[in-house]
Design a protein around this nucleic acid. Structure first.
Lengths: 217, 217
DNA sequence: CTCACTCGTCTTGTATACAAGATTTACTTG
DNA sequence: CAAGTAAATCTTGTATACAAGACGAGTGAG
C-alpha cells in the first residue's frame, strides 16, 4: 500500500471512530510534519477526504472534520432499507447452502463477542460483515461499495447510537430472524423486519441531547 | 463559479457527450496549456474526475478517459429501478397537485421536441429532469445526487443506446403511463412498468457490436 | 536480419517557494 | 479605557523546479 493510502486510511479510521472529533482542525502543515511528507501529496489526501464528506474545506481558512449530518443519515438508512428488502427477497429464492453457512458463521461470531467487555467494537464490525455478505451473495457488492463511499455520517451516527449494550442483543436477534425468514421464504414479513431493523433507531433526539457538539446545525 | 469548477464541468461534459472518446489521453501539460493554468490546480481536477470514474490514472503513465463499464451500468440501473419503484409508490399516495403539474410540464416539453431534427440531445436532458423531479418530489433529491456521482458509465451507455429515434416515442409514452398510474394509485402495475422502463433496454449486445471500441474489456 | 540494450523523452509524483485571503493580535488614537 | 485600524501571522491556493518511473526509438552486436 502506498504512503498516501496509508495516511488516508489512518485519517479515515480516526474520523470514523470519533478519535478525531467533528470540528477538529486538520492543518496541512501539522499533518505534513506528523507524517513526514510534503504538503502536495497531503493535499491530495485531504481533497479526497472532503469529496467523501469526511472533512469540509473552507478556502483560505482550513480543513475541518465534518459534523454529523442527520439528513444524510436518514437518506442512507432509507436507501439501505429499500435495497436490502429487495436483496433479501431475492436471496430467499436464490440463496445457496454455502451462502447460508457464511451468514450463520457471522452470527455465531456475534453471539460469541456479545457479552465481552469491549463487545461494541467487534460487534459493529460483524454487523457490517453480515449486511455486506447479503449484498455480496446477491451479486450487489458494487452497490455496497457505492454506499460505503457516502457512509461517514451514518457510521458515526450508528457508533454513538449503538454503543449501548442493550442494543446489541436486539440487533443479533433481528439478524437471526432475517436469516430464518430467508430460509422459510417468508417474504411477507421481510419488509417490516428490515424496515424496523434499519429504521427503528432513527432517534435523533438521543443524539441531539447527548452529542449536540458533534451534530451539524 | 471558480476556474477549476469551470474546467471540471467542461471536461465532464465532453466526456459524457463522448466528444472525448474512451481511451483518450488527458495530458496534464497539454490541458494546462489549453486552460492557461498551472499543473497543480489541474491535477486537482483530474484527481476528482478519476474518483468519479470519468478517468483512470495510471501512475507515471497518464490519465485516460475511462472505458464504459457495463457492470457498472447494470448495477446503477438495478439501483435506480429499485429506488424508483418505491418512490413512485410513495408519490401515488402523497403527490400534490403542484408536483403533478411539474411532471406534466416536462412531458409536454418532451412531446414538443420529439420530432425535431436534433431531438435526442434535448430529450435526454428532459428524461433526466423527469426522473430527477420524481426523486425531488419524494424528498429524495439527496439520493438522486448520490447516484449522479457514479453515473458516468450509465449516462454514456444510455447516450449510445437511445440515440435511435424510434426509442424516444416509447420512452415518452412510458413516462405518461407512470404519471397516469400514480394519479390512479394503480400501484400494482408500477413495479412491472418501472422495471421495463429502466431495464428492458439492457441490450449489451447492440453496444458490443457497434461500439466495442468504447467498452471496457 | 534480428534481438537486446541504452539513451532520450514522455508521463505523473513530490517538494518548495511564493501569492492571496482570513484572522488575530497589538497598537494607536480618540 | 475603548474602539478602530493596521500589521503580523495564520490558513490554503498556485506556480514551478526537480525526481523517478515508463516507453520507444535508434543503434550496435551477434
Amino acid at each position: 500500500m502506498s504512503t498516501k493510502e496509508e495516511i488516508m486510511n489512518s485519517l479515515k479510521n480516526e474520523i470514523l471512530t470519533l478519535a478525531l472529533k467533528p470540528g477538529t482542525i486538520l492543518s496541512e502543515t501539522v499533518l505534513s510534519e506528523r507524517f513526514q511528507i510534503s504538503r502536495t501529496p497531503l493535499r491530495d489526501v485531504l481533497k479526497q477526504l472532503s469529496l467523501e464528506s469526511y472533512t469540509d474545506i473552507y478556502p483560505k481558512k482550513g480543513n475541518l472534520v465534518s459534523y454529523i449530518d442527520l439528513e444524510s443519515v436518514e437518506q442512507i438508512i432509507y436507501l439501505r432499507s429499500v435495497l436490502e428488502k429487495e436483496i433479501i427477497k431475492y436471496l430467499s429464492t436464490h440463496l445457496l447452502l454455502k451462502g447460508m453457512h457464511e451468514l450463520k458463521e457471522i452470527l455465531d461470531k456475534q453471539q460469541a463477542v456479545i457479552h465481552q467487555e469491549d463487545a461494541a467494537e467487534q460487534f459493529l464490525y460483524l454487523d457490517d460483515e453480515f449486511h455486506k455478505t447479503l449484498f455480496k451473495l446477491a451479486g450487489r457488492e458494487f452497490l455496497w461499495n457505492l454506499i460505503q463511499q457516502s457512509n461517514v455520517h451514518y457510521v458515526r451516527y450508528r457508533r454513538l447510537h449503538m454503543l449501548r449494550k442493550e442494543k446489541l442483543e436486539a440487533i443479533y436477534k433481528e439478524h437471526q430472524s432475517i436469516l430464518e425468514y430467508m430460509m422459510n421464504k417468508n417474504t411477507d414479513k421481510i419488509d417490516d423486519l428490515i424496515h424496523h431493523h434499519l429504521r427503528e433507531d432513527i432517534n435523533t433526539l438521543y443524539l441531539q441531547e447527548n452529542f449536540s457538539e458533534y451534530i451539524k446545525a
